[in-house]
């Protein structure tokens, strides 16, 4: 318990001082995960919308697959991306292994199915409500998609936040493809794992506090947007 208190005090000290090594990993974490979420949103929303609005053979299969992939274990994603990007792998020529880009790819793979599956449900509800009106007005596919995205803006934001929460807190995938290299690919979660193993509990704890704070922030944002959503959806 003594240890814990000392570590906690030390952690607060480091946070207050804005320890550069600490901040570096926080900034990299945010950069990697936010980029992954944005890219996953681009693809995930499109896949979700297409699955919700069209009927084609295999659609059901893809939906089931996406639902299953929502629970992908991060280490397995890390392993798969590692094999793809390693020198002898099919994408080895890109030379991306152990870089922040590789971490973005891994997190993108991890959360795109989640965003696609969740946004599909959002789009399905919206489409059921608005498809006849939009058809009656003669709206083309692009207008339909833009309208549904705007009408579902709050729910879709919640979907993105859920993806972000999963990305920022995972450790397995970024550890494998990033390598936890100091000043280069060390993010909060991998730093916590490493510093704990080395016995530097205060650094680990300081990072842990920031991570928890970010996780709470994301959850708070989800709750607030849900409140907002309920108030204005009539």
């Amino acid at each position: 318990m003594q240890n814990f208190q000392a570590a906690f005090a030390n952690a607060l000290q480091m946070l207050r001082a804005g320890d550069p090594l600490l901040m570096e990993s926080v900034v990299l974490s945010l950069q990697v995960s936010l980029t992954a979420v944005l890219l996953a949103g681009l693809v995930g929303f499109l896949v979700g919308a297409v699955l919700a609005m069209t009927r084609f053979p295999g659609r059901q299969f893809i939906s089931v697959l996406l639902n299953a992939l929502m629970g992908l274990p991060p280490v397995v994603v890390g392993l798969a991306v590692y094999m793809l990007l390693s020198r002898s792998g099919p994408l080895g020529a890109w030379g991306l292994l152990f870089s922040p880009e590789a971490m973005i790819i891994a997190q993108w793979v991890l959360i795109t199915p989640l965003i696609a599956a969740l946004s599909k449900q959002v789009f399905e509800e919206l489409y059921a409500e608005y498809s006849e009106l939009l058809k009656s007005l003669g709206a083309n596919k692009r207008v339909v998609l833009a309208t549904l995205m705007w009408e579902g803006r709050l729910s879709l934001t919640v979907v993105l936040l859920a993806g972000f929460g999963r990305a920022i807190s995972e450790v397995g995938a970024v550890l494998i493809v990033g390598g936890n290299i100091v000043h280069h690919t060390r993010v909060m979660t991998t730093a916590i794992a490493l510093e704990t193993a080395k016995g530097n509990l205060s650094i680990a704890l300081a990072l842990g506090i920031i991570l928890i704070f970010l996780a709470c922030l994301v959850n708070a944002l989800i709750s607030v947007s849900n409140l907002y959503l309920n108030r204005f959806s009539g």
């Binding site: 608005y130 006849e132 009106l133 009656s136 007005l137 003669g138 309208t147 009408e151 009539g234």
Partner: peptide, 16 residues
């Protein structure tokens, strides 16, 4: 033909 007609539904479908 499509341009010159409109429809109003039993349950009003309004945008948010």
């Amino acid at each position: 033909i499509a341009e010159k007609q409109a429809m109003v539904f039993q349950r009003p479908v309004l945008l948010k």
